[in-house]
Simulated scan of single mutants.
Amino acid sequence: MEIKQLYREIVNEHNLNPEHRGVMENPSLKLRGVNPSCGDDITLQLRINDEGIIEDAMFDGSGCAISQASVDMMADQIIGRNKEEALKLASTFMGMIRGDVTDEKEIEELDEAAALQDVSHMPARVKCAVLGWKTMQEILEHPEKSEN
């Protein structure tokens, strides 16, 4: 199977069967992220324990396949990590999308989210891919913005 086809299937799977879609009861942090240029609109919810570990991540909302798949993949990656680790992953993801991060070892840390690497060649879709990641960065760096 061609690698691009495999990546399309990964993105499709996360879009059609997102594991982390839903509304979380009593999240520690909650923030809405909107991409007005294409209508992507998500609400990210995180549950963080007393040790600072992200115990759960969920999202609700609507958007294109890329935005929905990307935020679902992101949730997979940040559950079980602390704030600093989650922010480092976000930085790596943003760098990959911008084309600044090309080191395969760094990109491999993103696991399935690396499937979105080709989005960097589609400028109109970049905002879609980064919406969930930017929302996560915003809420972790500025918890006072939490909507709950």
Rank of each mutant, 00 (worst) to 15 (best):
R81E: 03
Q137T: 07
L44M: 13
D100K: 13
D118N: 10
A65V: 08
S146I: 11
N17H: 15
A114V: 03
I107H: 01
A129S: 12
I42F: 12
S146V: 13
S28K: 07
K30S: 14
D72M: 06
V11R: 00
R47G: 08
G132A: 10
E51Y: 05
M122K: 04
N148K: 14
K4D: 04
G80L: 02
R32Y: 08
L16N: 15
V11Q: 00
A124C: 09
E112V: 13
M73A: 05
D103K: 14
I48V: 14
D60M: 10
V130I: 15
W133N: 01
E144H: 09
D103W: 13
S67E: 07
P36R: 04
R47M: 12
E9T: 07
E2K: 14
I79S: 04
T102I: 11
N26H: 07
E106V: 10
I54C: 02
E109I: 11
F59I: 00
D103H: 13
S37E: 12
Q137M: 11
R47I: 12
E147Q: 13
A113K: 01
G63H: 03
D100P: 05
E106Y: 10
C128I: 07
M96S: 01
T135A: 11
L140Y: 03
M74C: 08
N17M: 12
M122F: 11
V34L: 14
K88E: 14
F93E: 04
E25V: 14
E112D: 15
C38D: 09
A124Q: 12
Y7A: 02
G99I: 06
L29E: 02
R98D: 15
H20A: 10
F59K: 00
A129H: 02
A69R: 05
Q68M: 15
L131W: 00
